[in-house]
Design a protein around this nucleic acid. Structure first.
Lengths: 340, 340
DNA sequence: AATAGTAATGCAAACGTTTTCATTGATGCT
DNA sequence: AGCATCAATGAAAACGTTTGCATTACTATT
């Protein structure tokens, strides 16, 4: 009896006294194999230390057992909740996740997509709707199941799950206006190649404009997605005269940075200045002061996105994109207060 | 000319007027193919929209182009920095990363490892040294390149990269003792199946004991890795009499929760109570107050771990584990102050 | 000019599965 | 008893690459 390093399906078959076909079936269609045979096969697997080869399986055309996930970054709280939820749901259904990050570079995103397709992922999840033409073309050409997370868009080319970021922006702006603030500043990331931030920012400014408030350019600061950067960039806001009484941040991470910047200047949040985020990431509710934000339900989005993708993967070539809107809602917390 | 949905290497070969072997070589050993031929092949690839099939490649025995990463969770800042760094380095070398989480359940970890091996990952990265016997056995049996991140261990069975968590614990304890604190509490996660937390806690308590200080059990609280949980659990600490003047937390996330808990009780950090973390995650330096912690250099660890793993993957069956110690260092910041 | 060496390419046999089709034996129906 | 049906299994042909070996056409050496 040969003792190869790594047993293959034939070794298992020999051990169990059946054909390789039967072993294969016992994995993929267990109902088609006699219980007693299955037991023998399982014993043979244990004895030989066999681990099935998904690559060999994938080559048959279908079923690689993997899905791809492309996100801008893993490096902060922004996507953690989302990814964790997505990943758990996928795993429940036997899929393993290939994860890649492009650092907000859409050229890179395209390359990553290609690389995922080389691995024959059965589906792909992306963030938002800003993708290069090549990306969209490739997705369509290969007809690969795909879902976009984190931003709902009525006329999206691909299926999507998320809140309406424009609405989120309007909602938080309304909250601030309703509290009587008029000296308002905003702190957003670059909106280039980032539809979520763009929609939010647009929503905020549009609502404010409708309320008769304009935000002068020097009160619109741009920052990067990190507490450190946000804190640095926000510092200047609190030296302006008149000092803004409210700062609307593009997301909770930036909001946290803004809060720290204010505190470092000896200002009290919310008594001297109100600060809001968007997203409601884990942590925002427990911070002190807890931060007023817009709940975007990352866990729900991740889980639904996974289900949707699974449907596409298993489903009968539905051709139209599904779009699922997750309601957004302002969570009023300690970081905001009626003005003046 | 047949127009299959997805071109294969044969279609490309036909288009380019060469054999499939040559196309394959142009991918894997470009130096063995005439430049002009390569150009023709590239054109054919573009025309056919060919995307090579890694599964078919992987089946040849070597080179799946993937590595596996198994972490407890993606859901908070703990591992984000580490993973991002690891992932970037891997990508630079053409690898795609399969990511899985086990939620601190080592039985689950074993299953995940099996699943990664089914996908024939070329290497595996794990966190720490607490793994089930089955996990260790399987790794050895398959002889798969593996690296453990985040905790240095002199006699580890597998290669590892990380700081000495025991030292980290001692160092931060020394910092607190040197500041004159004697009423000390600690807030750690469960140390079950978690050698990093266990080593840190041990280091802290050992140093304190050597300094003649014992921490009564009611001042040792256990919490979960999240700001919300830490904040909740820590609240009780600030109702004790005498109130602790310093709280040593098991990591920066917990430290942040403790700080919020203190602030919510109207206490000032660091004037009423000093709080320390361990890890120096991104954000800890920019918080307000910035948090005193032990720098564990997650970025460095992730990057080195990736390099080490790549070496193993490409290397000549070195048999002994490599162990790389990353120096730990107390970063004294605003959250700690001389006592009383 | 004959020969050895070399670079570029093709041929065909793997790689480890899955799946279609065929075979066998058992069961139920008339 | 004869026949149709069905469940369980096996045989063999795929799946899309890679690679060792063979072939060809050059180049350099004598």
């Amino acid at each position: 009896m040969k003792n190869k390093l790594n047993a293959d399906i034939i070794d298992v078959a020999n051990h169990a006294g059946v054909s390789p076909a039967t072993v294969s079936r016992s994995f993929n269609h267990p109902d088609k194999v006699l219980l007693s045979t299955r037991k023998r096969i399982e014993r043979a697997i244990a004895q030989t230390g066999y681990i099935r080869n998904r690559a060999a399986q994938a080559i048959q055309g279908k079923r690689s057992g993997t899905v791809g996930l492309i996100v801008p970054t893993l490096d902060n709280a922004i996507f953690s909740n989302l990814i964790q939820a997505f990943s758990e749901e996928m795993r429940l259904h036997g899929f393993t996740m290939l994860v890649t990050t492009h650092g907000y570079d859409l050229k890179d995103e395209y390359l990553l997509l290609r690389s995922l397709l080389e691995h024959r992922v059965e589906g792909v999840a992306l963030i938002g709707h800003d993708h290069s033409d090549e990306t969209y073309t490739l997705l369509e050409r290969r007809n690969v199941p795909v879902v976009s997370m984190w931003n709902y868009k009525e006329d999206s080319k691909i299926s999507c799950v998320g809140g309406e970021n424009d609405q989120a922006g309007r909602a938080i702006a309304k909250h601030i206006v309703d509290l009587g603030h008029t000296e308002i500043a905003i702190a957003f990331p670059s909106v280039k190649e980032n539809d979520r931030a763009r929609d939010r920012k647009h929503g905020v400014l549009a609502y404010l404009a409708e309320a008769g408030l304009t935000v002068p350019v020097h009160r619109q600061i741009e920052t990067v997605y990190s507490i450190a950067n946000a804190r640095n960039s926000a510092a200047e806001l609190f030296e302006m005269q008149p000092r803004p009484t409210a700062v609307i941040a593009g997301n909770d991470v930036i909001a946290q940075g803004v809060i720290y910047a204010a505190q470092a200047k000896g200002l009290d949040v919310p008594n001297d200045v109100s600060v809001t985020g968007i997203g409601d990431f884990s942590g925002s509710a427990s911070a002190f002061p807890s931060v007023t934000t817009v709940r975007m339900r990352p866990n729900k989005v991740g889980k639904i996105a996974a289900s949707l993708l699974l449907e596409r993967i298993n489903g009968e070539d539905e051709t139209d994109p599904s779009r699922i809107k997750v309601a957004v809602e302002v969570k009023s917390r300690e970081s905001t207060k009626r003005c003046c």
